[in-house]
Simulated assay, not measured.
Amino acid sequence: MNSSDKFRMRTETQEGRCTVYISGELDLEVASQMRSVMEPLVELCDRILTLNLQELRYIDSTGIGILISVLKARHARNGSFTVEAVPAHIKKLFDMTGITPFLNQGGPSAAKPI
């Protein structure tokens, strides 16, 4: 199985919002692909940047590190960043690593700065 079979990203831009749909496995093998998509989106501070994780099956520490990098970069630019449709097994991992409070999970309250 090559990386394109196990990991996919799709970006959808609407008025005031950019949503990135991630599916498969986000790990070290596909980290550069994830970063190359996310880096230009971090700069779009006039839009809400949302990651939809509904079809994410697995994330490792490298993937979590990318999420934290995006969160920090958006916070530094006063840009909005949310995560939505987090599968239960991924949410459990976010809880165990302590990043859940820093992710605005589609709710009205802002996430804490990291």
Rank of each mutant, 00 (worst) to 15 (best):
M1K: 07
N2S: 10
N2L: 05
S4M: 09
S4W: 01
S4F: 06
K6E: 09
K6L: 09
F7D: 06
M9L: 13
E12P: 12
T13H: 03
T13G: 04
T13E: 09
E15G: 02
E15S: 10
E15P: 08
G16L: 01
G16R: 02
R17E: 14
R17F: 10
C18A: 02
C18F: 06
Y21G: 03
Y21V: 00
G24C: 01
L26Y: 12
L26I: 08
D27V: 08
D27H: 14
L28M: 12
E29F: 14
E29G: 12
A31M: 10
Q33C: 13
R35K: 06
S36Y: 13
S36W: 05
V37S: 04
V37M: 03
E39Q: 15
L41V: 05
V42F: 12
L44D: 13
L44K: 15
L44H: 15
L44V: 15
D46F: 02
I48M: 13
L49K: 06
T50H: 09
L53I: 02
L56H: 00
L56Y: 10
T62E: 11
T62N: 08
G63W: 02
G63E: 10
I64R: 08
G65F: 09
I66A: 06
I68R: 03
S69W: 03
V70I: 01
L71W: 00
R74P: 08
R74M: 07
A76C: 09
R77T: 11
N78F: 15
G79P: 06
T82N: 00
T82V: 04
T82R: 01
T82F: 00
T82C: 04
A85G: 07
A85E: 05
A85T: 13
I90W: 09
I90L: 13
K92R: 02
K92L: 02
D95L: 04
T97L: 14
I99Y: 07
T100N: 09
T100H: 06
T100Q: 13
P101S: 13
F102T: 10
N104K: 10
G107T: 00
S109G: 10
A110S: 14
A110P: 03
A111Q: 07
A111V: 05
K112R: 14
P113K: 14
P113H: 11
